[in-house]
């Protein structure tokens, strides 16, 4: 591996058990600074468990995890300042307006009043939400909500943003638009860690991990994976990996 590359996340022998069920079985991987890192797998493969551990929402059973060079056991509070998180529910407050949601999330990350007003103005202009500034979130279409949830997750310019199935339930065009936002964030130097079960989205990632039954089955660039498994697209790669597992 290129020694010039700086790793922003390192995971060694990560194990997470729920009773006898092993959700994450000795995971080992690194995420490089500035890349879009895809975390793929079927439902129940252990993606969400892993992302929750990286975000500090849950402790691992064993293993070593560093996020932004900080240890998740002892430096959890420092990690929190440096990460953003967006869940599959596009969590915003329904009874607050677009602007109030932005102001609230910016506020809990400690942005100053001035920063909040410039940032939110910029953000609403970028998303074309200026006219919807005082609309309640419950009156805003799902696609907008999704974009807003992402923009809010990176409003404090985190080093890493974790996206847990950020494109669930939206149409292909909106998904494509959403990925444009992700590319833009990556260009600004934010490392993107994204889980998905849409295999076409895997093509957009710099590198992808495919998880099967709590283990990492493959980790490489999409083109390298397609070559290794002699497949024409990521969907075939995934099906081949999953099939091997079920046969074994």
């Amino acid at each position: 591996m290129d020694s010039m590359v700086e790793n922003i996340i390192t995971v060694k022998n990560l194990v997470k058990k729920f009773g006898h069920f092993v959700a994450n079985d000795h995971l080992n991987f690194e995420v490089r600074k500035g890349e879009i890192f895809g975390f793929l797998g079927a439902n129940g493969a252990g993606k969400t468990t892993a992302i929750r551990i990286l975000c500090g929402l849950s402790y691992p059973t064993s293993g070593e995890v560093k996020v932004g060079g900080l240890d998740i056991y002892s430096q959890r509070n420092d990690i929190k300042r440096n990460i953003g998180y967006m869940s599959q529910k596009f969590s915003l407050y329904d009874d607050l307006t677009v602007y109030e949601n932005i102001r609230f999330y910016a506020g809990i990350y400690g942005l100053s009043r001035k920063e909040i007003s410039t940032k939110s103005a910029m953000l609403m202009k970028k998303l074309g939400l200026e006219d919807a500034k005082d609309k309640l979130i419950k009156d805003v279409p799902l696609g907008w909500k999704q974009k807003l949830a992402f923009s809010v997750a990176i409003i404090h310019d985190p080093k890493i943003v974790f996206l847990d199935e950020p494109t669930g339930g939206v149409d292909p065009i909106t998904r494509r638009q959403f990925w444009n936002l992700i590319f833009e964030a990556a260009k600004d130097g934010i490392t993107v860690f994204v889980t998905t079960h849409y295999m076409d989205e895997a093509e957009y990632c710099d590198r992808v991990t495919i998880m099967v039954d709590g283990k990492i089955a493959a980790l490489d660039t999409p083109s390298a994976l397609k070559k290794t498994y002699s497949a024409s697209n990521m969907n075939d790669v995934f099906l081949k990996l999953a099939r091997v597992k079920t046969v074994a």
């Binding site: 975000c55 500090g56 929402l57 509070n77 929190k80 300042r81 990460i83 953003g84 998180y85 869940s87 599959q88 529910k89 969590s91 915003l92 407050y93 329904d94 999330y105 809990i108 990350y109 400690g110 997750a153």
Partner: peptide, 13 residues
């Protein structure tokens, strides 16, 4: 709503 997770991920204790 799932906002509890966002709050727990944030620097708020």
């Amino acid at each position: 709503l799932g906002t509890m997770e966002l709050l727990l991920v944030s620097p708020l204790r």
